[in-house]
């Protein structure tokens, strides 16, 4: 058992080969290309969602296509890539197939990526899981599969089933091919479907799309830092961090000039911005489901008016842009 986490990177199984493509010098995001016979070399490589035979890690090519179409609606591309174009579908697939490789792609390594001045990227070396963690994550991904010894807290439907059956339900609802729908039609279908498989898919897939678009790129989404660039976010900055001058720097306009009256409409939510501690507690308690997040936020009282105010914001920003 790897108890210290400093051992050499375990080789990937399943004949996965890796080659690194550096997209640009400042944001050294890595992507993976298929390479015929390349062997895994340094730690500076990640394998995201593709096996040597070119198929997806868990989903079929057709399922992945449907998932891409879903992601395009969940977080749309505007002048910068949204979820579908920033690698989120492949990252979700890699998560569903996390145990097809070793170590499983659950937790990126510590302590630094190479975005904050570190000489090498530690994030690309995923951590070995111990017995406890393996057990938890296999259940989360594969479900309890009718095995009574795993059902101490009742049966768990794994993400693999949620995606497989949810994507099939989407295609059924679209008369065979969800990906063929124009975006407005796909959006409407998602918002109006009462199919429990579709609803459960949304419940899991939207948080996943968020996670991969706004999380570290080593997990496969946020490709070329598209997610962070779109929102003016620096991401991880260690070990460099910020200088005293940067800390004291005066405010800047930010990416979007948001009208003051619209910002004021957001005040209900603003206090949450003052507490990374409570926010972290809230969002981590919610796990990975939108419905759980909704329940937690719902407990914060009447946020009903907020949706309308934010919709107005969206209109304003779009008009101003």
């Amino acid at each position: 058992m790897d108890d210290e986490g400093t051992g050499a990177q375990a080789p990937l199984t399943g004949g996965v080969t890796r080659r690194v493509l550096l997209r640009d010098g400042t944001a050294a995001t890595v992507a993976v290309l298929l390479a015929g016979s390349a062997t895994a070399t340094t730690g500076d490589a990640i394998a995201v969602g593709l096996r040597a035979d070119g198929r997806a890690a868990f989903l079929t090519a057709a399922e992945l296509r449907t998932l891409r179409a879903l992601c395009a609606v969940l977080i749309p591309t505007d002048d910068l890539p949204g979820a579908a174009d920033a690698g989120c579908p492949e990252a979700i697939d890699a998560l569903l197939g996390a145990f097809a490789v070793s170590p499983p792609r659950i937790w990126a390594g510590g302590g630094f990526s190479d975005r904050g001045g570190a000489p090498r990227n530690d994030f690309v070396r995923f951590l070995e899981l111990d017995r406890y963690e393996r057990r938890a994550w296999r259940i989360r991904i594969e479900g309890t599969r009718g095995l009574q010894r795993l059902e101490w807290a009742g049966p768990v439907r794994g993400w693999q089933a949620v995606y497989r059956e949810g994507l099939a339900a989407l295609d059924r609802a679209a008369r065979g091919d969800f990906a063929a729908l124009p975006v407005p039609a796909a959006d409407t279908l998602l918002r109006t479907s009462r199919d429990p498989d579709v609803q459960e898919l949304l419940d899991v897939a939207f948080p996943h799309a968020i996670e991969f678009l706004y999380g570290a790129p080593e997990y496969g989404g946020n490709r070329d830092l598209a997610g962070w660039r779109a929102i003016g976010y620096d991401g991880d900055t260690l070990p460099r961090g910020y200088t005293p001058e940067q800390i004291a720097a005066p405010p800047e306009p930010g990416l979007a000039a948001v009208p003051a009256e619209i910002l004021l409409g957001l005040l209900d939510l603003a206090p949450l911005g003052g507490s990374s501690e409570l926010v972290h507690g809230l969002t981590s308690r919610s796990g990975e489901r939108l419905s759980d997040l909704r329940a937690d936020l719902g407990a914060l009282g009447d946020l009903d008016g907020l949706g309308a105010r934010l919709a107005a914001l969206q209109e304003e920003v779009r008009r101003g842009a």
Binding site: T283, L310, L313
Partner: peptide, 25 residues
């Protein structure tokens, strides 16, 4: 960012509203 995106998710739902709110920062 990720925590913010998760907080906004149940209020705004998926789609353009969430995207724009995140870009408003």
């Amino acid at each position: 960012a990720f925590a913010e995106a998760k907080l906004l998710a149940p209020i705004l739902g998926f789609g353009t509203a969430h995207r724009q709110a995140m870009r408003a920062g």
